[in-house]
């Protein structure tokens, strides 16, 4: 049975090894300079500088002079076309722009690729600089591409520290490991501070007396956070000021076990501790505070 299968074959027309083109003096000079990392133009009889150089003045056909002028390396984009999906033969494998670039000192423009990242970055007038190929052979692609001027650098800053919890904080965290909130009572103004601290913020007096506080308290106020945070289980989450019973200053903590919009100012809550075997010297021992079900407290 005859089939309708198309009869297809692949055909490659390739001169083995590539054409060997002689450049003549002008193009050769240009490519030789490129290989050396310089961009040159040639001056016409009228004094214009052609880049890339031709052997003749494109306007008149007259021969150019033998004066070469170093130009660039930077240039100004006069027009550009954005390539969203590059083809395999394109000089770049990511979106880029073709551009006409008037190199500094030139009177004509050069066609080349610009690795701009974003089409908006390449309006006419944009300044671009060549990116040189690491191994240059004497070809127009010795310039890998042009890129916009450097207007920003990325500066990684990552100092490392070794933080030690000593003093009052350690005392407090040791309490939390035992499942107890340790506060301190100021001998001068009788205020109870939690977490336990070394001195009274109001009068500066050193705090000696430790007070064990219950793990119940009252929400004085709170925020419903709609921005995710790694320390919270989900969005929205409630961060609340919780005044522990017997304390004079609220602690900020997560509220859980209740929908965010049912949290109220005055709501009574109790700490939900992680199992004793999982406790460490950290506030992570308290998963969150959860409503006790008691009647709301009166707020002043």
């Amino acid at each position: 049975m005859e089939t309708s299968e198309p009869l297809v074959a692949r055909h490659v027309l390739e001169f083995p090894g590539g054409y060997t083109r002689t450049t003549g003096p002008v193009i050769g000079r240009f490519l030789t300079e490129l290989r050396a990392g310089r961009i040159v133009g040639v001056r016409t009889a009228e004094g214009r500088v052609l880049v890339p150089p031709l052997e003749y003045d494109p306007a008149t056909g007259d021969p150019v002079t033998d004066e070469y002028v170093e130009v660039g390396p930077a240039g100004t984009v006069t027009a550009s076309a954005w390539v969203q999906e590059p083809r395999p033969e394109h000089p770049l494998d990511r979106p880029f722009a073709w551009a006409l670039i008037r190199l500094d000192g030139a009177d004509t423009t050069l066609v080349h690729a610009v690795d701009a990242g974003d089409p908006k970055a390449l309006r006419p007038g944009a300044r671009v600089w060549p990116v040189w190929r690491e191994r240059r052979e004497g070809g127009i692609t010795d310039i890998a591409c042009f890129r916009p001027e450097v207007t920003m650098i990325v500066s990684p800053v990552r100092p490392e520290y070794r933080i030690q919890a000593g003093g009052a904080l350690r005392t407090f965290l040791e309490g939390v490991r035992r499942g107890v909130f340790l506060g301190g009572r100021c001998a001068t103004c009788a205020k109870v501070y939690v977490p336990f601290r070394a001195s009274c913020p109001e009068c500066g007096t050193r705090i000696a007396e430790q007070v064990e506080l219950p793990d119940t308290g009252t929400i004085t106020t709170f925020a419903i956070n709609n921005l995710p945070d790694p320390r919270a289980p989900e969005v929205p989450f409630v961060s609340a000021y919780i005044l522990l019973d017997g304390a004079d200053i609220p602690m900020i903590a997560l509220v859980g076990g209740v929908p965010a919009h049912e949290v109220r100012q005055g709501m009574r809550v109790r700490a939900e501790w992680v199992p004793e075997s999982e406790r460490t010297l950290s506030m992570a021992n308290v998963r969150w505070f959860t409503p006790t079900g008691e009647e709301d407290a009166e707020l002043s």
Binding site: I163, L173, N225, L227, D229, F237, S239, A253, S282, M283
Partner: peptide
Amino acid sequence: LPFNASLVVGAGG
């Protein structure tokens, strides 16, 4: 900083 558990997210929080 480590050990200082805080649930404040940005100035708004």
